[in-house]
Write a protein that binds this DNA or RNA. Structure first.
Lengths: 335, 335
DNA sequence: CTGAAAGCGCTTACAG
DNA sequence: CTGAAAGCGCTTACAG
């Protein structure tokens, strides 16, 4: 059907071995003249190398597989850009696979699609693998890295933000702006090793260091969704206790913001919002959402670097406060 | 390295042929007992089929390659969901390739990555191919479909909205709400065959039918970006001529909205906004943006259906007005 | 600098 | 129901 090196060999009179050598540029094993003829003929015939065949014989691959949630994780673009950049620099290719929305079967299909062909390794983009699927992965002998999710278990490689630091720094920032009654909303605290629990721990630490006594209704758990933000604010509204809230994601922050809008609560005059992530969504809404911003691009770049160099390692990327319009300083007034 | 059918053959005493037959489930060519033994051994050994080898010998593939812009086209998720759904139903796999942001080289790399391995076909997700890259594609003999982009050239297959209808229906809707001075903003009119030009044509047709004389400053061209919206509104602000504007995308609409916010123009009291696309962004901002909504999910689903069935065809998917909060009816007042 | 040959992991007529 | 053999498109020692 499509043209192969055999066709080129026939056309030029050289052997397939020679054709293969010039086409894969094994410099020094052929004369300039031969190369010219073969390359020309390849172009003329519209030759496209069949990488599947190459990968089969060389037993190695230049493609990294990225598995992402189809969930609206609005930061995945940034991570993928970072991955793409590093892959490009290293002359690797990247293919992206959707793993559905926390669906065991979809995850398994995405995993199989990756595992059933020659690949360099797998990058899991904030996908929380079901145990059964993690088992498939670990038993495959293919290197893999989690991005934007961290683990206690140091057998698993991850590149993420330090979630405890996120909680700690976010809270400290709000305290530095004069807030004392600070909510934390939209995060999932259940799994003791994970994101939510760590952030909450950092939050409590900052409170403690500032001598603030935590009240249980300051914590409004959720699933990082817009709806979590809406619900959280409704609960806060009942108590009218807090002056600032840390949202677990930008979407949670927007949920809170919009519900404030509906209930005629002025942000930031009556309630300050500090959101987590700092994606472009923060600048789309009014007032713009201040955030504790994660370096997603860097996560992508770094994880790909590790994968390519086969560095079995974990790493934290930087976090920083981005001041926009949704946090009010109480200090000026207090003074 | 990893376990092959040869290993299973050795382990079970059957030939690789038999192993192959049961593992690829060529029903009727083996006994239940044999199957049981082989499947068991495969599981025990952690066998993973090497699809690259299979594809090499069968000369066909079950993977559809989707090429997307890394540009913030915030509707691509919906399209991909539709693709994924249909692919799943047909037992096909999908891999996604990023083609950068209107970058010739990135496009070429994405294309090569797809073309250099066995695939079923290619779906181009609102990527405006450079001529050189289109040439590569067409000469490859692999079926491909454009999604969310239409062409005059009927040699190219596309699944998209009817852009002239978008312009026409959007304008008619605004006219039905009593608006007469209607802007259209953020679209690119240059390439005569494309999206922007068609929408503008539909817009003009609706105006004409309503006996409204178009004024040239009602058209503010752009590139479908947030910034286009901001700039457009600044220009409108100078003339204070229009009561409603059709934004070329949700981001354009938000750019207009936020600039209104800055200039203390009340939406929709002083200016109505009808945005194009109708993604989730419309419901994130306040007031929520009314839109002429495209059926992106369906585009994905339909194009994948065509690709799998090898239907050489074009199709338009439905469009509809989604009333939210950003369009004011002038009729009540007029009455 | 070039070619003949073996082999990567699979599938599938052909024969039995 | 099962096996021996050829072959998919490539690469790479080995020989010359």
């Amino acid at each position: 059907m499509s043209v192969t090196i055999k066709d080129i060999a026939k056309e030029t009179g050289f052997s397939v071995a020679t054709v293969s050598r010039v086409l894969s540029d094994k410099t020094g094993f052929f004369s300039q003249q031969t190369a010219a003829i073969i390359n020309e003929t390849a172009a003329k015939l519209g030759y496209k190398k069949n990488m599947a065949a190459t990968e089969l014989v060389t037993q190695k691959s230049n493609v990294v597989a990225v598995i992402v949630n189809s969930t609206k994780t609005n930061f995945s673009d940034q991570i993928i850009n970072g991955i793409q950049k590093k892959a490009d620099e290293a002359e690797k290719r990247v293919i992206i696979l959707y793993a559905g929305d926390r669906d065991e079967r979809s995850q398994r299909i995405a995993l199989s699609t990756a595992l059933e062909r020659p690949i360099l390794g797998i990058l899991l983009l904030s996908v929380d693998l079901f145990p059964s699927n993690l088992a498939i992965l670990t038993s495959s002998n293919i290197p893999f890295y989690f991005i934007s999710i961290s683990f206690k278990d140091t057998m698993l490689n991850y590149i993420a933000s330090d979630d405890q630091e996120i909680g700690y720094q976010a809270t400290n920032y709000l305290i530095s702006q004069g807030h004392k009654n600070i909510g934390i909303a939209g995060l999932n605290i259940e799994n003791s090793a994970h994101t939510g629990a760590l952030r909450f721990k950092g939050y409590q630490k900052a409170l403690r260091e500032a001598g603030i006594v935590f009240k249980s209704d300051w914590l409004q758990t959720g699933d990082y969704s817009y709806e979590s933000g809406v619900t959280a604010l409704q609960n806060y509204y009942l108590k009218k206790d807090i002056t600032a809230v840390i949202a677990a994601s930008d979407l949670v922050g927007i949920g809170i913001l919009n519900e404030c809008n509906r209930l005629k609560i002025n942000v930031p005059a009556e309630l300050s919002i500090l959101t987590t992530d700092g994606t472009s969504l923060c600048e789309l809404v009014r007032p713009q959402l201040s955030s504790i911003t994660q370096d997603f691009y860097r996560m992508g770049y770094l994880s790909t670097t590790y994968l390519i160099n086969n560095t079995q390692n974990n790493a934290y990327t930087n976090i920083a406060i981005s001041q926009r319009q949704s946090v009010k300083s109480l200090n000026k007034i207090d003074h």
